[in-house]
Amino acid sequence: MHSIPGRRIIMTVFLVFLLLPIYWLVNMSFKTNTEIVSTMTLWPHQPTAANYMRIFTDESWYSGYINSLKYVIINTVISIAVALPAAYAFARYRFLGDKHLFFWLLSNRMAPAAVYALPFFNLYSAIGLFDTPWAVALAHCIFNVPLAVWILEGFVSSVPREIDETAFLDGYSFPRFFIKILVPLIASGIGVAAFFCFMFSWVELLLARTLTATEAKPISAIMTRTVSAAGMDWGLLAAAGVLTIIPGALVIWFVRNYIARGFALGRV
């Protein structure tokens, strides 16, 4: 009953619309540059893996993926670790300035990265973190921590308060209750929050590019630079692009059953 007439057609058309540009990228990544430039082919007629081989064998390319993954993982761990207790506090207690604090956090999620690019550059240069994964990881906290708090608060609220009370009556200390009881109860929520932190840290480029120079350069920055320097190597560009899609696709596959709930930020 909750669907509309012609839904199969609409859905199919929309999915094709989503997949077509991605297909084109995959298609190009398996072609040689001569084939890309000289002919218009719907699939590679002389398929080649040379573009991928170059990325996997050239350290300046594959180190970019490692750098990106480093700061994404550091950021996700930090965000979840600090957001969990805060989410519990917001869900369970009223305290001085709680609403204002929540709004202030939320407003940071909305702050444009372009505003912070230059001050972050100064700040992290001053404390000697410039060009390390930590700089990017900490910088990304500005939008991921508020988001994680927002999502987790919804999940904690859905845990009945009686569980807390029973645990405390049973003599659980607060840290023990937190780790032994609460965390397992909202495990799916933590998964969803981690997914979102991963996602937003992985897709961000402006801050990641501004805060790194050579050592910790993320893959997205390497893509923009190397390609323009070497003339337009379309096949290589496409292959690098395809490889950036894969980690995201893997993560989606693991959380697919929670996606819908997570997108409503645990509040449905």
């Binding site: 893509m223 692009g241 696709a249």
Partner: peptide, 11 residues
């Protein structure tokens, strides 16, 4: 549906 959301913005 979720796929485009996970692609880095410059990609």
């Amino acid at each position: 549906l979720a796929l485009p959301l996970l692609i880095p913005w410059n990609v």
